[in-house]
Design a binder for these strands. Structure first.
Length: 551
RNA sequence: GGGCGCGUGGCCUAGCCAGGAUAGGGCGCUGGCCUUCUAAGUCAGUGAUCGCGGGUUCGAAUCCCGCCGCGCCCGCCA
């Protein structure tokens, strides 16, 4: 239920009834809540914008939605009636309608899909966190969302890892499987670079694996499966889970069948097959190879099959992809359309996270692993919390939740397409625009509610303090934030809102005593705090951040 | 070389799509606020030729053109 919009629509209605038409915009706070600038009308009518604004105000009917409508120079400014708004917000939170949207059908969000060659690093984690939050937001907005991970067990990188496992003997430590097996990958790549003839052996592994070689299948199970178990555990630690893992090898046969749909554009080169993209009217690349000369499939073909598979399962398909996939995605989309014309494929692209020293690479070991970031984060929280007297178990829970909150928020607070440089001090910042700041605010609000014995009654008509009003107005905008973030596939908008809302509450907290206020004021403020807390908790849930009641 | 994206105070960032009222935040730094609901908070101060140059407009961080810097892509890798 979009309360803020309903007030805006009322303003538009009043304007229309006054004989004018135009877009009502949100105003800067000092000028009111909505504004209608009269410049473009002035141009059309060749009249002064100030005169038009005056005329509009004169002709405007009174409305219970607004306590004041006035013109300031060439602007018509609307001031919302806070009594009406606070009542609507509190009731919508209580009956749940603030969080409800009409159902919108099925969607698959695919994210992470990192090659299983080693533990997850923080660069890849940007993909995971964005994807996970996007899925949560779309779900809240009314989609029936399934989250997918496309496991590449067929490609060259993974074959190289298997080659390593077969041919290199390493001392395997006691670490988790992903940390153990990544060493084969790194060592194998090192050898491959020095001895190009190894390439043939790797190709042979791909060939045999695609044809179901029992020994290799078993190895894949052990090594790739093991690394995947590690990746899953790392992600579970930061509140990320999947509904389905689709292994590429399971789609190889299906992929081969689909090639017939592309025959018109298919050409041969020394036994290899490619799609002539030029003839398809695509630019930026001339050939898209689907088969190697030895008859094994290439990633684009398997990816096409995967997207066809998804298109058959859900109405909307959204991939979270690194910026390096932009061209690839456009091409795949076009080809999938030839096979499934109704397929609706979309992507959210994000820029890479680099280290101050440069790019991250699992191959070269120049990475910061997600697990290390979580561990360091937890150490830092522990340091802060150690003087507080909470039971040991509760303390451990808080430490984990806050560390994860800091990490997730740090990633989500920035527009996806902006490049990021990973810095420990920023990633684990607990002050200002940070996850812990928001969690702390939630704990404060919860603490007030716990101390109050209150039956839930309140009188909306006595709302008067500017901080009460500002907080309520911001709360009213929540549904619009969900809508915009969903439509634009932009989870960062929810993160920005979370911060603004928490920050606004802290100002209210400073200026408006709740428990010690006179009874009527106390009741109203408790109603506001309670609604605020429910909204903030929901916002945090969309960000995948836990909301501790104490910290 | 061609295509796509990014460029806002010392650092990070919002605003750009739908052009308007003194360019918002945060970090850092300086100085205040805990006998009052958790100081992971809060207030004040500090600090910006919105990459550069043109154009459109009454009005440009925002739209258009050119240039510069950075990233990514243009593989029988994924």
């Amino acid at each position: 239920m979009e309360i803020w919009s309903s007030f805006r629509k009322e303003a538009e209605k009043l304007l229309k009834e006054a004989g004018y038409e135009g877009m009502i915009e949100d105003a800067k706070e000092e000028f009111g809540d909505f504004t209608f600038p009269c410049f473009s009308l002035a141009k059309e009518r060749k009249e002064s914008p100030v005169d038009i604004a005056k005329d509009i105000v004169e002709k405007m009917e009174k409305s219970e939605y607004f306590e004041k409508i006035e013109n300031v120079g060439p602007y018509v400014n609307f001031h919302i009636n806070p009594k009406k708004m606070v009542r609507e917000v509190i009731e919508a939170v209580r009956n749940g309608s603030l969080f409800k949207f009409e159902s919108k059908g099925s969607a698959i969000v695919e994210h992470t899909s990192a090659n299983p060659t080693g533990p997850l690093h923080v660069g890849r984690t940007r993909n995971s966190i964005i994807g996970d939050s996007l899925a949560r937001i779309l779900r809240r907005y009314g989609y029936d969302v399934k989250v997918h991970y496309f496991v590449n067990d067929v490609g060259k990188q993974v074959a190289t890892l298997l080659w390593g496992a077969k041919n290199i003997s390493l001392e395997e430590g006691e670490e988790r499987e992903d940390y153990r097996y990544v060493k084969y990958y790194q060592k194998a790549y090192e050898l491959l670079e020095k001895n190009p003839e190894i390439e043939k052996e790797v190709q042979d592994i791909i060939w045999r694996y695609e044809r179901g070689d029992a020994e290799l299948r078993e190895m894949a199970n052990k090594y790739i499966g093991g690394i995947m178990r590690g990746i899953e555990e790392s992600l579970r630690n930061i509140n990320i889970e999947f509904d389905e893992f689709v292994w590429e090898s399971s789609l190889v046969e299906k992929a081969k069948e689909l090639v017939k749909y592309l025959e018109d554009y298919l050409e041969e080169d020394d036994g290899a097959y490619y799609v002539n993209l030029k003839r398809l009217g695509l630019e930026g690349k001339e050939r898209l190879y689907l088969y190697r000369s030895d008859g094994t499939t290439l990633y684009p073909l398997r990816d096409i099959a995967y997207h066809v598979y998804k298109a058959d399962k859900a109405e909307r398909n959204i991939d979270v992809l690194g910026e390096d996939h932009k061209l690839h995605f456009e091409v795949i989309k076009k080809l999938v359309k030839l096979i499934r014309p109704q397929a609706k494929l979309e992507a959210l692209f994000y820029s890479f996270v680099k280290l101050p020293e440069g790019k991250m690479s699992t191959r070269r070991g120049t990475v910061v692993y997600l697990d290390d970031l979580v561990r360091e984060g937890m150490k830092k929280v522990e340091e802060i919390i150690k003087t507080r007297e909470y039971p040991e178990e509760e303390k451990r829970e808080i430490i984990k939740k806050v560390a994860v909150g800091a990490i997730r928020f740090h990633i989500l607070n920035v527009q996806e397409e902006k490049p990021m440089t990973f810095r420990w001090e920023n990633a684990l910042n607990f002050e200002g625009e940070s996850g812990p700041f928001i969690q702390y605010t939630h704990a404060r609000a919860t603490s007030i509610l716990k101390k109050a014995s209150w039956v839930g009654e309140y009188d909306a008509s006595i709302i008067s303090h500017p901080q009460e009003i500002r907080l309520v107005k911001l709360m009213a905008k929540y549904p619009e934030v969900i809508k915009e973030a969903s439509e634009k596939l932009a989870p960062y908008l929810v993160a920005r809102y979370a911060y603004k809302l928490a920050s606004q509450f802290n100002q209210f907290y400073r200026d408006c005593p709740v428990l010690k206020a006179e009874e009527n004021t106390r009741n109203l403020r408790l109603a506001i705090v309670s609604a605020f807390r429910d909204i903030l908790k929901d916002v945090l849930e969309l960000l995948g951040i836990d909301a501790p009641e104490k910290m």
